[in-house]
Design a protein around this nucleic acid. Structure first.
Lengths: 192, 192
DNA sequence: ATATCACCATACGCCGCCGCATGGTTTTAA
DNA sequence: TTAAAACCATGCGGCGGCGTATGGTGATAT
């Protein structure tokens, strides 16, 4: 039983329950088959556990972004889609991110999200500049729009799936649409 | 001291604290200068209060949407912008909506949001059909995209304002941009 | 004038969680 | 082999919140 185990369990609870209040020592101890005595050996208090969990999540997100960027893919469009998938697909696949966003009132959470999201937007912006030779500002605007769109979609898809038509719930469809709109298309038919 | 007072206070707490757990009888009683005795006279339990607060919010949102739609404005663009402002500006101005979205794990919350958001998307879709003579599907897609974009923006603006450039934090700028993108523009310069 | 009703105050028991204190057990090291 | 260190179990006190019981007002009706 190590500190990392506790942090992982905390992240699991956050993902499953969708709220920071799910990170509570006694329930976690039960889930882990451990006791509070163990916990308070590895951490000074509950806040320290939350910090550790947040740090773990930030490290994972950062690594995944780095991997997506450094993929040795020739086709720029493929790289773009891969980056977009990593940035936004996380929200679609992994509730943790939405849970954190919901808890962003907490300054610690906000700080982590701020770093992670900034890095993502920077990456997408620079890829757009390189791929489409867009000027900085235009690239940033498009990146931001695409990201916000995907963020809102993920939120709706998770919270109130019924307001989304069938197609809009599929991640690949969303990615297609997002990437096309990044390229400057307006929203039309699928283009092979 | 009436039941509506309690429900309003509950909504205030939800807005200020940003979480359903802020709707707690004892703190509310303190805030109102009342006591739990009063509360349990008007409501059977805490859940009933939450239901009342949600119903109040839904009624308000529905009314505001109806007013925005029935505005006797000749210019269709103005009506569109007004509708958009009502739909999304709420998220910008009033944290309540984002708090609810964050709490949509709760089925009651999800049900309310589902109704409110469906109505908004329907309204925007039909306005787009009427104004731009778009086919149903295309109109729905555009409406959904604009709404998700604004939703994500509102979320970011509230949770992590620093990732947004200055301009993207201004509601009017966002509305301009959203409306233009609804019309089919790609994201370019302001057009008078 | 008194009985009833709407309405509010106070006090209590309960539960879930935090944090600490204390004592036990296993591992490491000399 | 024994002392220290790392690690874990258990129990307690406290806090904040829920729900209830019970008693107290003032108004209204008869």
């Amino acid at each position: 039983m190590t500190a990392a185990d506790w942090a992982d369990a905390a992240l699991d609870a956050l993902r499953d329950e969708g709220s920071l209040s799910a990170i509570a020592i006694e329930p976690l101890a039960a889930r882990l088959g451990a006791t509070k005595g163990s916990f308070y050996w590895h951490f000074t208090n509950r806040d320290a556990l939350i910090d550790a969990a947040l740090a773990g999540w930030e490290a994972r997100s950062t690594r995944e972004l780095r991997e997506a960027v450094s993929v040795g893919e020739r086709e720029p469009a493929a790289r773009g889609r891969e980056l977009l998938r990593t940035m936004t697909g996380l929200a679609h696949r992994d509730p943790t991110e939405l849970a954190l966003l919901a808890e962003a009132g907490q300054p610690r959470v906000a700080a982590v999200l701020e770093r992670v999201i900034s890095r993502r937007l920077d990456a997408l912006t620079s890829l757009l500049r390189a791929t489409l030779s867009l000027p900085e500002e235009e690239a940033r605007q498009r990146a931001l729009r695409a990201y916000c769109d995907q963020l809102g979609r993920a939120q709706l898809a998770r919270a109130i799936p019924t307001v989304l038509p069938e197609a809009a719930r599929d991640e690949e469809t969303c990615l297609d649409s997002a990437w096309r709109s990044l390229l400057g298309a307006t929203a039309g038919e699928p283009q092979p």
